[in-house]
Design a protein around this nucleic acid. Structure first.
Lengths: 151, 151
DNA sequence: GCGGTTAGTTTCTTCAAGGAACCATCTACG
DNA sequence: CGTAGATGGTTCCTTGAAGAAACTAACCGC
């Protein structure tokens, strides 16, 4: 059977998952984000099937999360880059890092560190309220119907 | 072929995806988070195959993201609840909401609104640095090797 | 003309997703 | 005691996707 699509659900989580919810996609964004932008590089680094990689890249370009750029004319060669839309999706990766460091790193500690440009420190993201600036985690919110409820 | 597992990669993003990266799993967490905790409720609300739902629930319980709780003795009946580990994973959903509201809501607007307990306002999450408290998005960080690099 | 580089495409096999039916356990009721 | 209902899965079958490996195409250098 064909896999269920989430794009028609009246839920931003489902719609986001419709774009990025296939397991390889976040890892592709991660690699492009750190500068691994060419097909064979991605294939090697991820250990992914060439067929699946090609399919995922095509999907992500179609969703305007990545763009396919020609970097030489002769011969014509292509690499992939994040769009603005795609860069914002990478915020998701930072939250995954926080959770992953806390729950999956074990005694070895985190495999990758992140240094914040502004303060120069090794840091993590915290979720804060866009209105008052206080901590805002999943346990700190009430859920209400919005204007886009009926889709 | 069997799907590739990400749990052995020296990357917190990959390891997190190993736990929660299957497309239905975040939606299951979402539903349990808002109080849809029983099997048939979940199956109805999600429109998921009973077989796949049973498999996912078993996986998420095994990963200690959900727990299976008996709510009546006779007959013995079970519901699912978030663990502390699972609640923290729901932060991921808030970031998906933010991205989804911005890029997938269209003219109808966001389907669901979130009110922050602390300030009582309809709000979104912002990613901020755990050290200095300033904005910390994916474009604001440098990536460095950590102690858990070699896994 | 051949080998190398790069970016896919095609073929084949195996396994997972999904739908539908079925099963198990317990209770209430006539 | 038999039947129906509620709840939480399990089993069976079909179809499509994931993955491995080989192949293709376009261009360049020698």
């Amino acid at each position: 059977m064909q896999r269920t699509h989430f794009g028609e659900m009246a839920c931003s989580i489902a719609r986001t998952l419709d774009v990025i919810g296939e397991p390889w996609s976040p890892l592709i964004l991660r690699d492009v984000y750190v500068g691994i932008t060419r097909f064979d590089q991605l294939q090697q680094e991820l250990g992914i099937s060439r067929k699946v990689l090609a399919e995922r890249l095509k999907w992500l370009v179609g969703q305007e999360v990545l763009e396919r750029k020609q970097y030489t004319d002769r011969p014509p060669r292509f690499e992939y880059a994040l769009t603005a839309k795609g860069r914002e999706l990478c915020d998701l990766l930072l939250v995954m890092v926080r959770w992953g460091d806390r729950f999956t790193a074990g005694e070895a500690g985190p495999p990758v560190l992140y240094r914040h440009h502004a303060c120069g420190e090794i840091s993590h993201v915290e979720l804060r309220c866009s209105v008052c600036g206080e901590r805002m985690n999943a346990t700190d919110v009430d859920v209400l119907p919005g204007p886009g409820q009926r889709a």
